[in-house]
């Protein structure tokens, strides 16, 4: 029983510490993005560049708070405030 509880707690901790996934349009993503993948960004999110140049494509629809971005060239990170 103790082992089961320990294993469950460990699993939960691992899940809680989980970083962003690299899958496109993942609403919880926060981290470096890769070329040609589409990511969703929300109000308050920031794009930080790590190369020069860093070029992105942004698509925004009127009335929606979120936008989608796609990295065209360079290296950037999405920063999401908790």
């Amino acid at each position: 029983m103790k082992n089961i509880l320990t294993l469950t707690s460990f699993t939960l901790i691992l899940l809680g510490c989980g970083g962003g996934s690299s899958s496109g349009s993942n609403k919880t993503f926060s981290g470096a993005i890769v070329v040609s993948e589409v990511y969703t960004v929300f109000p308050g999110d920031s794009i930080v560049k790590h190369s020069d140049p860093a070029i992105i494509n942004i698509i925004h629809k009127e009335g929606q708070s979120e936008s989608t971005i796609e990295l065209i060239e360079g290296n950037v990170t999405i920063l999401r405030k908790p």
């Binding site: 929300f42 930080v48 140049p53 860093a54 992105i56 360079g74």
Partner: peptide, 15 residues
């Protein structure tokens, strides 16, 4: 829809 290509400035982009 608005679609635009932009360089990321040194100070970044905040949505």
């Amino acid at each position: 829809l608005v679609t635009f290509v932009t360089k990321v400035p040194d100070y970044g982009i905040t949505f």
